[in-house]
Design a protein around this nucleic acid. Structure first.
Lengths: 128, 128
DNA sequence: CATACTGTGCCTATCGTATATACACAGTAT
DNA sequence: ATACTGTGTATATACGATAGGCACAGTATG
């Protein structure tokens, strides 16, 4: 599990953290398609979490079409073109941004103010 | 309780919905300072929710300095200047936007792409 | 002072979600 | 046959959100 870090102090549930970090890696093309994900039991042991928690994250990834699982074989990264990856990524961001913009707008902030804040804060955010 | 709508189907807890809607009204200057908030028991009855839930929302509002409560009297909107209201509003949005931008950035999206999406989506969002 | 409000604090109870452990079953590869 | 794999189920714990009830103390009004 390269680059996966789980915190039980986070406000986000563990399965959600797992899902977000792996889907991020897939969407950025950092994982080759048809590459084996670690076996559920293995991942659970490595991360010292429950099998159910891992399963939940894997199920969420499968629902989003990012991985596919074969009973008895394992779980694999879906074979998606760069175009498809880009579309999935944009759709996820678009969906999330609608919620975010609603929150901002309900506080009475204008489009220009939002863009000004984006420009001010974007570089301050450390992506991981 | 003007303009307050609670949904138990929302993924957000009830006290959070209450908090967000009232703080939004205060921050937009829609409620006069020193105006009485409804009594906790009254609000709970009107909204058909538990007293504890209302209390939780009121406590969150007090922690943010948006209201103050006097035992035996009631809860009142804090007396804040337009300047202070604006600052509080911006700080809340700034804090939230840092989380939002982290989420976008972790999916590998550039500043320009974000701004493009903001411009595309802002008008589509119906504030309430 | 009596009454009726107010906020506050505590106890109990229920419900759903997240998490964990254990076991059994079935598919796959060697 | 053996050792992997995913899947399903049963049980258990912990915690947050929600709800109802009760008691206490402060405030205002008569």
């Amino acid at each position: 599990m390269r680059g996966i870090s789980i915190s039980n102090k986070s406000n986000k549930p563990i399965y959600q953290q797992l899902f977000e970090q792996i889907s991020s890696q897939i969407l950025k093309g950092e994982l080759e398609s048809d590459f084996n994900l670690p076996a559920i039991r293995t991942a659970a042991k490595e991360l010292r979490i429950s099998i159910i928690t891992v399963k939940k994250a894997w199920e969420k990834l499968e629902r989003d079409g990012l991985i596919y699982s074969v009973a008895g074989k394992g779980c694999f990264i879906s074979d998606l073109s760069n175009n498809e990856l880009g579309n999935k990524r944009t759709n996820i961001i678009r969906k999330q941004m609608l919620k975010d913009l609603l929150f901002y707008k309900n506080l009475g902030i204008s489009e220009d103010e939002i863009i000004k804040l984006v420009k001010e804060l974007y570089s301050k955010v450390l992506s991981c």
